[in-house]
Computed example of a mutant assay.
Amino acid sequence: MSDEDRYREQAVSWLALIWGPVFALVGYLTELIGGGPRHGLTWIGVGLGLALITLPWAYARRRYLTVRVTRLELWQGREALPLGQIKELDDVGTPVGARVLGGGWTVPRKYDELPIRLEDGTVVLAWAKDVEALRDALNEVRGSS
């Protein structure tokens, strides 16, 4: 979390890139212990291949599923909502057809929604894995402004 971030949810860590190489290492060690033929170059290729196919997945999740609250904005994926536009966070109902922040059609899977009433009266849906922590961070930052 940077100095400017008041709240941050990262969708995935870059450590996910080591899953493939670790899997390949376990496979190679299994061959060593088993005493059969050893395929060291093949396991290196498997580890690199799995890391390479994990790279775009991790990049996309970090880019489109990160939630941040700074002093001035709520970031949902690539979309920023200035905190000055937020009118109400508590007891806001979710109308049918409310726009989802971040550019998606729906709230991402495994995320909960937080309806937010804006100054112009519209309701948008923010989302986070921990909605209460997001609401608390937004209330804290808006209260200190």
Rank of each mutant, 00 (worst) to 15 (best):
A60M: 14
I33S: 07
L29V: 11
L81E: 07
R142D: 04
R71N: 13
Q85G: 03
G20K: 02
R68N: 06
I44A: 10
R78N: 04
T94V: 15
G104I: 00
L74G: 02
A58V: 15
K87N: 07
V26N: 09
G103L: 10
V22C: 05
E88K: 05
V92F: 06
E9Y: 00
R8N: 02
T70Q: 05
R6I: 06
G121Q: 13
E119M: 12
G104C: 01
G93W: 09
I116L: 08
P56H: 11
V22L: 07
L114F: 13
R8L: 05
K87A: 12
A80T: 08
L101W: 02
R6G: 02
E140Q: 00
G104R: 14
A128K: 04
W14Q: 11
G93I: 06
W43Y: 09
I18K: 04
G20D: 08
A11I: 03
Q10A: 15
A133R: 04
W14A: 03
E113H: 04
P82M: 08
R8K: 10
E119S: 12
P56K: 11
V46M: 01
A98D: 01
I86E: 08
E9C: 09
V67F: 03
L118T: 12
G77P: 12
L138W: 01
E9D: 04
V124F: 07
D91S: 13
R38D: 08
Q76V: 10
V92H: 07
V92A: 09
R6D: 05
P115G: 12
S145Y: 00
G84C: 11
I86G: 05
E4W: 00
D136M: 06
F23E: 03
W57V: 15
T70A: 01
N139H: 14
D91C: 01
W57R: 10
R71C: 08
G47A: 03
W105Q: 15
L138Q: 02
E140W: 05
T122N: 07
G103R: 02
E79R: 04
T30A: 14
E113A: 09
Q10C: 06
A98F: 05
L118C: 05
L50T: 04
L114G: 12
I33G: 00
G35Y: 07
L101K: 07
V100T: 14
T30K: 09
A128D: 06
L89F: 02
G103Q: 07
W57N: 11
E113C: 00
F23I: 00
L138P: 03
L15Q: 05
V123L: 10
A60N: 11
E88D: 09
G40Q: 09
V22W: 00
I18N: 06
I86W: 06
L32I: 11
T30W: 15
L32H: 10
D130E: 05
E119T: 14
W127N: 06
L101A: 03
T122H: 03
T94C: 13
E113F: 09
V69G: 06
V100R: 13
D90Y: 11
T54M: 15
G36S: 03
T42S: 13
R6T: 03
Y64S: 07
P95M: 11
A137P: 03
T54W: 09
L52A: 14
G49C: 11
V22P: 01
V22K: 05
W105M: 15
G121L: 01
T106Q: 14
V107M: 09
A137I: 03
M1R: 15
G20L: 01
